Simulated scan of single mutants.
Amino acid sequence: MLLPRMKLARLFDRAFHAMADLHWTMLVLLIAVHAAVTWLLLAVAGESKLQEASAFLYWYATTAYTVGYGDLSPQTAAGRLVTALWVFPGAIAAFTTVVAKVLGAIGDIWRLRRAGKGDYSKMTASIVLIGYHPARTPKMIDELCADLSPDQTLVLLTRQTLTDLDGRIRYVQSESLTSTAALTRAGVPQASRVLIFTDSDSDTLSATLAAAALVPPTAHVVCHFEDEDHARLIDQHCPEVEVILSAGPQLVARACKDPGASQVISALTSHLDEGATLFSLAWGAERPRAFSELARSLLEQGATLLAIQSARDTTPTFNPPMDRLVDAGDRLFYVAAARLAPTSLAA
C-alpha cells in the first residue's frame, strides 16, 4: 500500500507544479476538459444547435476569443446560465493565459538574443564574424551588410557583452571563442562564410583552428593577422583558410612611390565608397572560355576583368595571355560598380 500511495503523491505533486507553472501540456488538458464539460452541460440544457462538433467548436472559440459574432448562441435559460457561470470565466481565462504564455515566450526569446544567448545553429548560408575589435568590427559589419544577399544573415560571436546592438546582426556572447558549443550556437557548422578578426593574433589563431574544424567543406574561412608567424602557422595547418596579413608597411611604401595608390586600394576594397569595387565570382560553366572573350563580355556590362585564379592555384594571375582558357572552378576577379550575377557570363 505504501508504494502506490507514494506514486500517487508524486503524481499529484507533479500535477500541482504543472498547474502552478501553467505548462503547455497542463494548459491544453485544462482547455480540453473545460470544453468537454461545456459540451455535456449544453447537452443537458437542451442546446441542440450547439451539439454538432463544428458548430460547438466555432461557438466555443468565438466565445473564448471574446469576438462574439452572435450567429450562434444558447437559446434556453439553462444554456445561458451555463454560458454565464461556466463558459465565460473558463474559456476567456484560458484564452488570455494562452496569449500571455505566447507573448512571454516571445519576450524570453528576445531577451535571450539581446543577452547573446540565442541559438542560430539551424541557420544556413549565414556569415559568422568571430571576435570583436571596438574600432574595426563596426566598419566590417557595415562592409558586410552593404553586400549581404537576402538569404544571408550576419552572426557576431564575441566575448564582449554588447548593450548597444546593431539591428542588422545576430549576436552570440561566449566566454571562449574556441568553444564548440558557442561556435555551433553561432551557426559555424552551417555557415557559408566565416571571418575571424579579434583584437589579438593569439585569439585569432586559436579561433581559426577551432572554426576550421567545424565548417562544412563548401564554406570559406578568412582570418586576419598582424604577425607573419601566426599567419604562417595557419598556412601550414589549414591551407584552405584564406589569411589576410596586415598590409600597413607595404601600403605606406607603395603610396610613397606611387602617390594616390592607397586611395585606389581603399576604394577597391570598400562597398561603402561610391565608384568601382573589387568583386570575384567562380566560373561555373562547363564549357571553357578564353580570357579575352570573358574580358570583353564583362566590359560590355561595365566591369573590368583583372585576374584569374585557377582552382589548383593559391595566387591569382594578372594579365594572363588572351587565349588562356578559363575552366570550371576558376575564379575571376573584376572591378565594377556592383556585383554581377554569375549567370550574366554564362551565355
Rank of each mutant, 00 (worst) to 15 (best):
R170A: 10
Y171K: 00
Q173W: 04
S174I: 02
S176K: 08
T178W: 09
S179Y: 02
S179L: 05
A181P: 03
A186V: 13
G187V: 03
P189I: 02
Q190N: 14
Q190T: 11
R193E: 04
V194M: 03
I196G: 00
F197Q: 01
S200E: 14
D201G: 05
S202E: 13
D203H: 03
L205C: 03
S206V: 10
T208I: 10
T208P: 09
L209M: 14
A210G: 04
A212K: 03
A212M: 06
A213N: 08
L214H: 04
V215R: 03
P216L: 03
P217A: 15
H220M: 08
C223G: 12
E226G: 15
D227E: 15
D227M: 13
D227K: 12
D229Q: 07
R232K: 10
R232V: 09
L233H: 10
I234G: 06
I234H: 02
D235R: 15
Q236L: 15
Q236G: 15
H237K: 14
P239R: 01
V241K: 00
E242L: 07
E242N: 09
E242S: 12
A247F: 09
G248K: 10
P249W: 11
P249R: 13
L251V: 10
C256W: 05
K257D: 09
K257Q: 12
D258H: 11
D258N: 13
S262H: 03
S262Q: 06
